[in-house]
C-alpha cells in the first residue's frame, strides 16, 4: 500500500481503536478484543506491504499502469512512490542502497505508530479497563445524553400506572 499510506492507515486504526474498544469491547467485558484488533491491523497491513515490497504481487502492477498518469516499475517503486496513484510523483529512487535499511526501519516502525496512536486514543476516548467510567478528552466535545425518564429540563417523568 506504500509506506506513507500504511503508516497513515495504521495511525488511523490505532486512533480509533479505543473508540471501538469502548463501544464493543469494554462494554461487553471482552477485554482481549483490543489485542486481537492490534494483531489483525498490524498483521494484515505488514503482510500485504511485505508481499508488495518483495515483488510477490508484481503481477498486479500492470492493472495500475493502465491509467495514463501511473507508471510503476515494481513493488519497491510502489512502496516508496505510492501517491502516484493520486497523480503525485515524489520521484524517490527506490534502488538506492540506503533506502533498503530505511525500508526495514519503516516496517519495524508499524507497531510503534499503532501503539502511539492507540495510547493517544485511550486518552481521547477513555478505555482504562480498571476505570470504565473514564470517557477521555472526547467528553468535552460530546453533547450530553438525556435520561429516558426525564423531560427536556431533566425533570423526572412520573411512571404510568
Amino acid at each position: 500500500m506504500g509506506f506513507v499510506c500504511s503508516i497513515f492507515l495504521i495511525s488511523f486504526f490505532g486512533f480509533i481503536s479505543h473508540y471501538w474498544y469502548r463501544k464493543y469491547g469494554l462494554a461487553k467485558g471482552k477485554l482481549a478484543w483490543i489485542s486481537y484488533y492490534l494483531l489483525i491491523v498490524i498483521g494484515f497491513i505488514l503482510l500485504l506491504d511485505l508481499l508488495i515490497y518483495l515483488g510477490l504481487l508484481d503481477f498486479l502492477i500492470p492493472l495500475f499502469n493502465y491509467f495514463p498518469w501511473i507508471n510503476i516499475d515494481n513493488g519497491k517503486d510502489f512502496m516508496w512512490n505510492s501517491f502516484i496513484i493520486f497523480g503525485i510523483d515524489w520521484n524517490i529512487s527506490y534502488n538506492d542502497s540506503g533506502l533498503y535499511y530505511f525500508a526495514i526501519l519503516n516496517f519495524l516502525s508499524y507497531p510503534v505508530w499503532f501503539m502511539f496512536f492507540k495510547d493517544l486514543s485511550r486518552k481521547f476516548f477513555g478505555g482504562n479497563k480498571h476505570r470504565p467510567y473514564q470517557k477521555g478528552i472526547s467528553y468535552l466535545i460530546t453533547s450530553p445524553s438525556r435520561n429516558d425518564n426525564t423531560d427536556k429540563n431533566g425533570i423526572k417523568i412520573p411512571e404510568k400506572a
Binding site: K123, G126, Q134, I137, Y139, L140
Partner: peptide, 9 residues
C-alpha cells in the same frame, strides 16, 4: 467531575 471522568487531561 470533568477531570475525573476524562481520566486524562
Amino acid at each position: 467531575y470533568s477531570a475525573y471522568i476524562m481520566g486524562h487531561f
